[in-house]
Design a protein around this nucleic acid. Structure first.
Lengths: 240, 240, 240, 240
DNA sequence: CATGAATGAGGTTTCATTCAT
DNA sequence: AATGAATGAAACCTCATTCAT
């Protein structure tokens, strides 16, 4: 309509524009419900261009996947790379991860394809089921700490946090088990217990882990000018 | 085709048969690529029956979701409910969870809708990206323990396990963050560190958590007759 | 649900019950969109009964058509039959017709299949088109009388009435023409002019035709106890 | 099939081609029984084109409705507009109407959606019922004139004509009544009597209305070059 | 007299994809 | 570099109708 500057644009630029819009649409709708028509229209070009540059819907989605995965990985690596202790580097990486997904919802949704791809009713049912599991686990967690630590009354928030860790870990370990056929559910469960049981109390008690002591590397996990992961904070500077 | 004995079957039975097949197909293909045609054919009936009983494709999927979610939840609860200490109960619940998803892959896939819903190429790309992340984290983990624990050389398996826990937890905490807007990535990362840093070493050292002391309930987490979650093991009985 | 008296019912009664409901549903939805399912459910029986008694959807509709057409015809005939002059009898018949269709909307709709059968949007478009034609004709009519009768300002209502007569007559004559291939549009138009041009002025002037002189037949068009066409009024008794 | 020259055709042209065929099919079959498949095939294109240009079956039908309604209205207006007296203009309009519907049966059927939409058996039943009503009314009419006018024996044709006018008018007035809730069937009947009783005798007597006197516009209602309503005749020129 | 179970056929609609300009 | 025109395939869903009880 008001197209005046939709001039001839070099391929690389166009490609990025297309992918930009595709990430938006795929995140909003999910893979199958997303239509190439909509993406092309949003990008301000015609469909044949999309096919010329990205080959197919699948190719387009793969391009999104690759670009976004690389950006997230880069954010993590940039933060984790450095001189600090491994402990510090892990922390920095995690911080960067959380900062990145906070800033780039669409990117994360496309990579993880949570929500969407399904109608609202279905999405809601899935969320409901997951919430029920969380509540169950959180209750168990609260009981555990209450009995073990006496008067400590863990807040709902902390218990919920622990529940998310446990459930997320369990989800993920399901994949791990698949590649370790010898492992039994029992052993996996014990390992997970081993890993989280001690630390759980700290969290429920409201403690916050502190970087042990930055001996003489003042910047710790630094990410000076990460162009796409803007705010990986150094230890003290905590952004809103 | 082969069976001519497709006789009149009461509604409740047919409904379960349909859902049985639907879970299979949805797990294999994902929601959108799955076709009601295929489900009906597998169930040995015609499409209109599916619509008569389950209303729509979405209704069918919701029915799958509800039934499978309830079965999984029941398996967990049955195991976790009991007299033992919370610690024991959590362990029992986790064991039951892993046992259940081991036995019922389709159920878990439908509930989690990981793979599928996307073409093979895309699924593979997603898996690749996730593997890359895992490897990165596992490396960090290995470094950490190597430096901290001196001569201990953690096996790849253990490091990979820890990485799965961390990545799964991070995934899940992304949802948690969404409902706690005040939280900063920095604080979330610290909490996670707090929870796992200590226990991580145990795992990497190859330790296996042991039920503290079963005072006078010698069988630990028992699930005597779980109808659908067959093998929630007591500590010693480990199934293949 | 609260079926207590849905006992064995003799065929003739059941048939009428079915037709009763069918008239309702066909009137509301139109022939094709109406579903036998809905009719059966409303009638409180199962579908096979409908087929047993009325053979098919078409048979069911034909039964509706016949019964309702007969009722309307009966109402007309009962009123028009009698001792009065033909003028009076025609008037009585028309009165009975208008009374009947006023009382039995569904019946009329099924017979005339106006509205319905089409989605709301389409119905509305049809109505719009018809209104436009009416307005055009009414304007012409108003102009005609204004010029011809000097100061008489016909009300909108009267002009609209005349327009309806003209348009309805034209619609109907379209069928008539089909069976008189020799007739030209020109001759048909002249005939119609001939028939309405004089009387038009009376109507526009607000005059009301009066039964010439009811000599000594005090009841005029009577319909003493018409069971289904309750209110064919004698000349003076005008119901609300 | 036969024509290989199905070349790229600009949108506006294709749209009209599609609507052309749709009018045919809708007229032949009625709205619901008509299938988009058939329309597309007749138009020599594939179904998706129909949906691309007209959005939906309903949209397609609406497009037919609008175009045909406008053409008919235009034919009427073009003829009725002019210098003659209102009487003449009304006559000219009616002439044009009858000429148009004579030439464009499909157009009229779609607009009026009489026949069709129903199976042949049902259509026939409807026609039968209507014929019965017509016969009844025609009988009344013949009686009336016979008694009132003495030796005049109105032909069947004339009585049938009058009956069509009366029945068509009554149909149409049913709608009018709906928008005038205060009116009673009695008053409506009187009005209709008022309007037609006098003119009826003229028609039954075989008289033909003559344009009063075309003062100095000798050709009466002319429509010199109506592109789509070819034969709106001036008084003398009567086409076959 | 009465019905729950079952289906074949067909409808509208949408989409990814390509041709011809 | 870019696009309007066009389509094959397949999806979901509904309905009138019939068995077998």
């Amino acid at each position: 309509m008001s197209d005046k500057r939709r001039r001839r644009v070099p391929r690389q630029v166009r490609e990025q524009q297309i992918i930009d819009m595709a990430v938006q649409v795929f995140a909003k709708r999910g893979y199958h419900p997303a239509s190439v028509d909509e993406i092309a229209e949003l990008a301000g070009i015609s469909k044949p261009m999309v096919y010329l540059y990205l080959d197919s819907k699948e190719g387009l989605f793969l391009a999104c996947l690759r670009r976004e995965a690389e950006r997230l990985a880069t954010a993590f690596q940039k933060a984790a790379r450095g001189v600090g202790s491994p402990e510090m580097r892990l922390w920095a990486g995690l911080s960067a991860f959380f900062a990145y997904v906070t800033e780039h919802r669409d990117s994360w949704v496309v990579l993880h394809r949570q929500t969407s791809e399904l109608s609202e009713a279905i999405t809601e049912e899935v969320a409901r089921a997951r919430r029920a599991v969380m509540a169950e686990v959180a209750g168990l967690v609260r009981d555990g700490i209450a009995e073990a630590a006496g008067p400590v009354r863990p807040g709902d928030e902390e218990a919920d946090f622990v529940a998310h860790v446990l459930v997320g870990a369990a989800d993920s370990l399901t994949d791990w088990m698949e590649r370790h056929p010898g492992e039994t559910p029992d052993r996996v469960a014990r390992r997970l217990m081993n890993m989280v049981w001690v630390g759980m109390r700290n969290v429920l008690g409201g403690e916050l882990w502190e970087p042990p002591e930055p001996p003489h590397a003042p910047e710790g996990p630094e990410a000076p000018d990460a162009p796409h992961a803007p705010d990986v904070p150094g230890p003290p500077s905590v952004e809103g």
